[in-house]
Design a protein around this nucleic acid. Structure first.
Ligand SMILES: Nc1ncnc2c1ncn2[C@@H]1O[C@H](COP(=O)(O)O)[C@@H](O)[C@H]1O
Ligand SMILES: [Zn+2]
Length: 290
DNA sequence: GTTCTAGAAC
DNA sequence: GTTCTAGAAC
Protein backbone atom coordinates (compact mmCIF):
# COMPACT_ATOMS: atom_id res chain seq x y z
CA UNK A 1 0.00 0.00 0.00
CA UNK A 2 1.55 3.38 -0.95
CA UNK A 3 1.86 6.08 1.66
CA UNK A 4 0.44 9.37 0.39
CA UNK A 5 1.58 12.93 1.01
CA UNK A 6 0.35 16.35 0.16
CA UNK A 7 3.56 18.01 -0.94
CA UNK A 8 4.11 21.67 -1.71
CA UNK A 9 6.52 22.08 -4.61
CA UNK A 10 7.15 25.63 -3.45
CA UNK A 11 7.95 24.58 0.09
CA UNK A 12 4.97 26.46 1.45
CA UNK A 13 4.55 23.86 4.18
CA UNK A 14 5.98 20.63 5.37
CA UNK A 15 4.69 17.52 3.60
CA UNK A 16 1.33 16.51 5.06
CA UNK A 17 0.72 12.82 5.50
CA UNK A 18 -2.64 11.76 4.04
CA UNK A 19 -3.63 8.57 5.82
CA UNK A 20 -6.09 6.30 4.05
CA UNK A 21 -9.64 6.24 5.36
CA UNK A 22 -9.08 9.02 7.89
CA UNK A 23 -9.43 12.74 8.51
CA UNK A 24 -9.95 15.64 6.12
CA UNK A 25 -7.68 18.61 5.52
CA UNK A 26 -7.93 22.20 4.49
CA UNK A 27 -5.47 23.58 1.98
CA UNK A 28 -6.07 27.08 3.06
CA UNK A 29 -4.47 29.17 0.38
CA UNK A 30 -6.36 27.21 -2.24
CA UNK A 31 -9.68 27.33 -0.39
CA UNK A 32 -10.09 23.67 -1.12
CA UNK A 33 -10.97 20.90 1.24
CA UNK A 34 -9.40 17.55 0.67
CA UNK A 35 -11.71 15.01 2.14
CA UNK A 36 -10.00 11.76 2.81
CA UNK A 37 -12.59 10.36 5.16
CA UNK A 38 -14.02 7.15 3.75
CA UNK A 39 -11.92 7.57 0.62
CA UNK A 40 -8.79 5.74 -0.34
CA UNK A 41 -6.30 8.58 -0.45
CA UNK A 42 -4.74 7.50 -3.71
CA UNK A 43 -8.08 8.33 -5.34
CA UNK A 44 -7.52 11.96 -4.42
CA UNK A 45 -4.67 12.47 -6.82
CA UNK A 46 -6.94 13.95 -9.46
CA UNK A 47 -8.12 16.60 -7.04
CA UNK A 48 -4.65 17.44 -5.96
CA UNK A 49 -3.52 17.77 -9.55
CA UNK A 50 -5.70 20.84 -9.88
CA UNK A 51 -4.18 22.39 -6.82
CA UNK A 52 -0.90 23.60 -8.14
CA UNK A 53 1.62 23.80 -6.51
CA UNK A 54 0.67 20.55 -4.85
CA UNK A 55 1.52 17.06 -5.93
CA UNK A 56 0.97 13.73 -4.26
CA UNK A 57 3.90 11.53 -3.41
CA UNK A 58 3.34 7.81 -3.30
CA UNK A 59 5.81 5.79 -1.33
CA UNK A 60 5.60 2.14 -0.40
CA UNK A 61 5.38 1.59 3.31
CA UNK A 62 8.88 0.54 4.21
CA UNK A 63 7.98 -1.28 7.38
CA UNK A 64 9.36 -4.78 7.01
CA UNK A 65 10.75 -4.01 3.59
CA UNK A 66 14.16 -2.65 4.38
CA UNK A 67 15.90 -5.80 5.59
CA UNK A 68 18.45 -3.54 7.19
CA UNK A 69 19.54 -2.01 3.87
CA UNK A 70 19.59 1.74 4.16
CA UNK A 71 18.54 3.83 1.19
CA UNK A 72 20.92 6.74 0.56
CA UNK A 73 19.26 9.88 1.87
CA UNK A 74 21.83 12.58 1.30
CA UNK A 75 19.58 14.41 -1.13
CA UNK A 76 16.60 14.61 1.19
CA UNK A 77 15.99 17.96 2.79
CA UNK A 78 12.39 17.67 3.99
CA UNK A 79 11.87 17.97 7.70
CA UNK A 80 12.49 14.83 9.68
CA UNK A 81 9.79 15.38 12.24
CA UNK A 82 6.96 15.48 9.75
CA UNK A 83 6.55 11.77 9.50
CA UNK A 84 7.73 8.41 10.56
CA UNK A 85 11.38 8.28 9.64
CA UNK A 86 11.11 5.86 6.77
CA UNK A 87 8.03 7.10 4.96
CA UNK A 88 9.14 10.56 4.02
CA UNK A 89 8.61 11.71 0.46
CA UNK A 90 11.81 11.69 -1.52
CA UNK A 91 11.33 14.95 -3.35
CA UNK A 92 12.93 18.03 -1.92
CA UNK A 93 11.97 21.65 -2.26
CA UNK A 94 15.55 22.60 -2.81
CA UNK A 95 16.36 22.91 -6.50
CA UNK A 96 20.07 22.35 -6.14
CA UNK A 97 19.55 19.12 -4.30
CA UNK A 98 16.70 17.98 -6.48
CA UNK A 99 19.02 18.02 -9.45
CA UNK A 100 21.02 15.26 -7.87
CA UNK A 101 18.01 12.99 -8.38
CA UNK A 102 18.11 13.69 -12.11
CA UNK A 103 21.18 12.29 -13.80
CA UNK A 104 23.12 15.16 -15.31
CA UNK A 105 24.29 14.07 -18.72
CA UNK A 106 26.74 16.89 -19.45
CA UNK A 107 25.85 16.84 -23.15
CA UNK A 108 23.44 19.79 -22.82
CA UNK A 109 21.28 18.08 -25.47
CA UNK A 110 19.54 15.83 -22.98
CA UNK A 111 17.66 18.63 -21.23
CA UNK A 112 15.59 19.96 -24.11
CA UNK A 113 17.60 23.17 -24.15
CA UNK A 114 17.81 23.15 -27.94
CA UNK A 115 14.19 24.28 -27.94
CA UNK A 116 13.29 22.03 -30.86
CA UNK A 117 9.69 20.79 -30.68
CA UNK A 118 10.73 17.18 -30.30
CA UNK A 119 12.47 18.02 -27.02
CA UNK A 120 9.21 19.17 -25.43
CA UNK A 121 8.83 16.21 -23.08
CA UNK A 122 12.23 16.90 -21.53
CA UNK A 123 11.00 20.39 -20.69
CA UNK A 124 7.57 19.29 -19.44
CA UNK A 125 8.91 16.49 -17.24
CA UNK A 126 11.08 18.98 -15.32
CA UNK A 127 8.18 21.37 -14.79
CA UNK A 128 6.56 20.83 -11.36
CA UNK A 129 3.28 22.15 -12.73
CA UNK A 130 3.16 19.27 -15.20
CA UNK A 131 4.24 16.54 -12.78
CA UNK A 132 1.57 14.44 -11.14
CA UNK A 133 3.85 11.83 -9.61
CA UNK A 134 7.57 11.34 -9.21
CA UNK A 135 9.99 9.10 -7.40
CA UNK A 136 13.68 8.27 -7.57
CA UNK A 137 13.56 6.86 -11.10
CA UNK A 138 10.47 8.10 -12.94
CA UNK A 139 8.15 11.06 -13.32
CA UNK A 140 4.54 11.11 -14.57
CA UNK A 141 3.08 14.09 -16.43
CA UNK A 142 -0.30 14.69 -17.95
CA UNK A 143 -0.08 14.56 -21.73
CA UNK A 144 -0.19 18.17 -22.97
CA UNK A 145 -2.47 17.17 -25.86
CA UNK A 146 -4.46 14.29 -24.32
CA UNK A 147 -6.04 11.90 -26.80
CA UNK A 148 -8.57 10.63 -24.25
CA UNK A 149 -10.22 11.69 -20.99
CA UNK A 150 -7.17 10.39 -19.13
CA UNK A 151 -3.77 10.38 -20.75
CA UNK A 152 -0.53 10.30 -18.78
CA UNK A 153 3.09 9.85 -19.79
CA UNK A 154 5.54 7.96 -17.56
CA UNK A 155 9.15 8.99 -18.18
CA UNK A 156 12.43 7.86 -16.60
CA UNK A 157 14.71 10.56 -15.25
CA UNK A 158 17.46 8.79 -17.14
CA UNK A 159 17.77 10.13 -20.66
CA UNK A 160 16.90 7.25 -22.99
CA UNK A 161 15.91 8.50 -26.44
CA UNK A 162 13.47 5.76 -27.53
CA UNK A 163 12.56 2.07 -27.57
CA UNK A 164 15.50 1.19 -29.80
CA UNK A 165 17.91 2.24 -27.07
CA UNK A 166 16.41 -0.10 -24.48
CA UNK A 167 18.48 -3.11 -23.38
CA UNK A 168 18.24 -5.89 -20.82
CA UNK A 169 19.72 -3.67 -18.13
CA UNK A 170 16.66 -1.44 -18.45
CA UNK A 171 14.27 -4.26 -17.42
CA UNK A 172 13.89 -3.05 -13.84
CA UNK A 173 13.25 0.48 -15.01
CA UNK A 174 10.68 -0.54 -17.61
CA UNK A 175 8.96 -2.79 -15.06
CA UNK A 176 8.82 0.12 -12.62
CA UNK A 177 7.36 2.41 -15.30
CA UNK A 178 4.67 -0.25 -15.86
CA UNK A 179 3.94 -0.44 -12.12
CA UNK A 180 3.70 3.34 -11.79
CA UNK A 181 1.39 3.37 -14.81
CA UNK A 182 -0.88 0.86 -13.09
CA UNK A 183 -0.83 3.05 -9.98
CA UNK A 184 -2.05 5.98 -12.08
CA UNK A 185 -4.90 3.85 -13.39
CA UNK A 186 -5.85 2.71 -9.88
CA UNK A 187 -6.04 6.26 -8.55
CA UNK A 188 -8.17 7.46 -11.46
CA UNK A 189 -11.65 8.47 -10.29
CA UNK A 190 -13.13 6.63 -13.28
CA UNK A 191 -10.98 3.54 -12.95
CA UNK A 192 -14.05 1.33 -12.57
CA UNK A 193 -15.91 2.61 -15.64
CA UNK A 194 -13.07 3.14 -18.12
CA UNK A 195 -10.69 0.70 -19.74
CA UNK A 196 -7.03 1.70 -19.91
CA UNK A 197 -4.08 0.63 -22.01
CA UNK A 198 -0.41 1.18 -21.35
CA UNK A 199 2.17 1.12 -24.10
CA UNK A 200 4.72 2.79 -26.32
CA UNK A 201 4.49 4.21 -29.82
CA UNK A 202 6.69 2.04 -32.01
CA UNK A 203 8.06 5.13 -33.75
CA UNK A 204 7.68 8.08 -31.40
CA UNK A 205 7.91 11.68 -32.54
CA UNK A 206 9.03 13.08 -29.21
CA UNK A 207 12.45 12.39 -27.77
CA UNK A 208 12.88 10.75 -24.33
CA UNK A 209 11.30 7.31 -23.97
CA UNK A 210 7.79 7.54 -22.52
CA UNK A 211 5.03 5.13 -21.56
CA UNK A 212 1.51 6.18 -22.59
CA UNK A 213 -1.20 5.45 -20.01
CA UNK A 214 -4.44 6.23 -21.80
CA UNK A 215 -8.13 5.59 -21.24
CA UNK A 216 -9.90 3.87 -24.10
CA UNK A 217 -12.73 6.38 -24.58
CA UNK A 218 -10.59 8.48 -26.94
CA UNK A 219 -12.99 11.26 -26.12
CA UNK A 220 -10.82 14.32 -26.68
CA UNK A 221 -10.67 17.36 -28.95
CA UNK A 222 -6.92 16.78 -29.32
CA UNK A 223 -7.54 13.55 -31.21
CA UNK A 224 -7.79 15.04 -34.68
CA UNK A 225 -6.45 12.79 -37.43
CA UNK A 226 -5.83 9.31 -38.72
CA UNK A 227 -2.29 9.19 -37.41
CA UNK A 228 -3.50 9.95 -33.90
CA UNK A 229 -6.13 7.22 -34.12
CA UNK A 230 -4.01 4.50 -35.65
CA UNK A 231 -1.07 5.20 -33.35
CA UNK A 232 -3.19 4.11 -30.38
CA UNK A 233 -5.41 1.44 -31.94
CA UNK A 234 -3.11 -0.58 -34.21
CA UNK A 235 0.08 -2.51 -33.49
CA UNK A 236 1.84 0.85 -33.73
CA UNK A 237 0.96 0.87 -30.01
CA UNK A 238 3.20 -1.70 -28.32
CA UNK A 239 1.89 -2.92 -24.97
CA UNK A 240 4.07 -2.15 -21.98
CA UNK A 241 4.16 -5.81 -20.97
CA UNK A 242 5.27 -6.83 -24.48
CA UNK A 243 8.16 -4.37 -24.32
CA UNK A 244 9.17 -5.85 -20.99
CA UNK A 245 8.94 -9.42 -22.31
CA UNK A 246 11.01 -8.57 -25.39
CA UNK A 247 13.68 -6.97 -23.21
CA UNK A 248 13.77 -9.97 -20.89
CA UNK A 249 14.00 -12.53 -23.68
CA UNK A 250 15.94 -10.74 -26.46
CA UNK A 251 17.55 -7.83 -24.67
CA UNK A 252 15.98 -5.39 -27.10
CA UNK A 253 12.65 -4.25 -28.50
CA UNK A 254 11.67 -5.47 -31.95
CA UNK A 255 9.84 -3.01 -34.21
CA UNK A 256 8.65 -4.45 -37.50
CA UNK A 257 9.64 -2.79 -40.79
CA UNK A 258 6.11 -2.09 -41.97
CA UNK A 259 5.08 -0.32 -38.78
CA UNK A 260 4.83 3.16 -40.26
CA UNK A 261 2.30 1.90 -42.81
CA UNK A 262 -0.09 1.03 -39.99
CA UNK A 263 -0.74 4.74 -39.59
CA UNK A 264 -2.37 4.85 -43.02
CA UNK A 265 -4.88 2.07 -42.41
CA UNK A 266 -8.56 2.96 -42.73
CA UNK A 267 -10.22 4.25 -39.57
CA UNK A 268 -11.74 1.38 -37.62
CA UNK A 269 -13.54 1.34 -34.27
CA UNK A 270 -11.30 -0.27 -31.65
CA UNK A 271 -14.32 -1.82 -29.92
CA UNK A 272 -16.62 -3.23 -32.62
CA UNK A 273 -14.17 -2.92 -35.56
CA UNK A 274 -16.68 -1.08 -37.74
CA UNK A 275 -14.92 0.93 -40.46
CA UNK A 276 -15.72 4.62 -40.55
CA UNK A 277 -14.81 7.08 -43.30
CA UNK A 278 -13.87 10.25 -41.45
CA UNK A 279 -12.66 11.42 -38.05
CA UNK A 280 -15.90 13.27 -37.27
CA UNK A 281 -17.88 10.13 -38.15
CA UNK A 282 -15.58 8.08 -35.92
CA UNK A 283 -16.09 10.47 -33.01
CA UNK A 284 -19.83 10.22 -33.50
CA UNK A 285 -19.63 6.43 -33.63
CA UNK A 286 -17.54 6.26 -30.43
CA UNK A 287 -20.38 7.91 -28.53
CA UNK A 288 -22.41 4.74 -29.05
CA UNK A 289 -19.91 2.90 -26.85
CA UNK A 290 -19.84 5.35 -23.91
C1' DG B 1 -20.39 25.62 -50.69
C1' DT B 2 -18.83 23.10 -46.79
C1' DT B 3 -16.33 19.48 -44.72
C1' DC B 4 -12.27 17.22 -44.14
C1' DT B 5 -7.61 15.79 -45.03
C1' DA B 6 -2.78 16.05 -45.51
C1' DG B 7 1.63 18.29 -46.16
C1' DA B 8 4.85 22.44 -45.13
C1' DA B 9 6.91 24.66 -41.49
C1' DC B 10 13.96 27.29 -42.64
C1' DG C 1 4.56 16.42 -31.69
C1' DT C 2 1.25 20.90 -33.34
C1' DT C 3 -0.55 24.70 -36.31
C1' DC C 4 -2.10 26.38 -40.43
C1' DT C 5 -4.41 26.19 -44.66
C1' DA C 6 -4.81 24.75 -49.81
C1' DG C 7 -7.44 22.01 -52.24
C1' DA C 8 -9.57 17.29 -52.50
C1' DA C 9 -13.79 15.06 -51.55
C1' DC C 10 -18.42 15.17 -50.92
N1 LIG D 1 5.46 19.60 -24.59
C1 LIG D 1 4.75 18.51 -24.30
N2 LIG D 1 4.47 18.19 -23.02
C2 LIG D 1 3.76 17.08 -22.72
N3 LIG D 1 3.28 16.23 -23.63
C3 LIG D 1 3.53 16.51 -24.92
C4 LIG D 1 4.27 17.65 -25.32
N4 LIG D 1 4.36 17.66 -26.68
C5 LIG D 1 3.71 16.56 -27.09
N5 LIG D 1 3.21 15.85 -26.05
C6 LIG D 1 2.52 14.58 -26.08
O1 LIG D 1 3.54 13.59 -26.13
C7 LIG D 1 3.12 12.46 -26.86
C8 LIG D 1 4.24 12.09 -27.82
O2 LIG D 1 3.82 11.13 -28.75
P1 LIG D 1 4.79 10.04 -29.32
O3 LIG D 1 6.14 10.67 -29.50
O4 LIG D 1 4.15 9.61 -30.61
O5 LIG D 1 4.79 8.93 -28.31
C9 LIG D 1 1.81 12.84 -27.53
O6 LIG D 1 0.76 12.15 -26.89
C10 LIG D 1 1.68 14.35 -27.30
O7 LIG D 1 0.36 14.77 -27.10
ZN1 LIG E 1 -17.69 0.55 -32.52
Amino acid sequence: MPVCWLFSEEGLHKPIHLPHWHASYWVEDQKQQLKTKNVLVSKLLHIVNDLYPYTIQFKEDLIGEQRGVKRPREHISVDKEVSGQDTRPLTTKNNEKEKSVVPDTQTSKSDGSSGHWNQGLKVSMQDPKMQVYKDETVVVIKDKYPKARYHWLVLPWQSIPNLKALRKEHCDLVRHMDEVGKQMVCQCPDTDSLRFRMGYHAIPSMSHVHLHVISQDFDSPCLKNKKHWNSFTTDYFIESRDVLHMLESDGRVCVKDNTSELLKLPLRCHICHKEVSTIPALKEHLKSHF
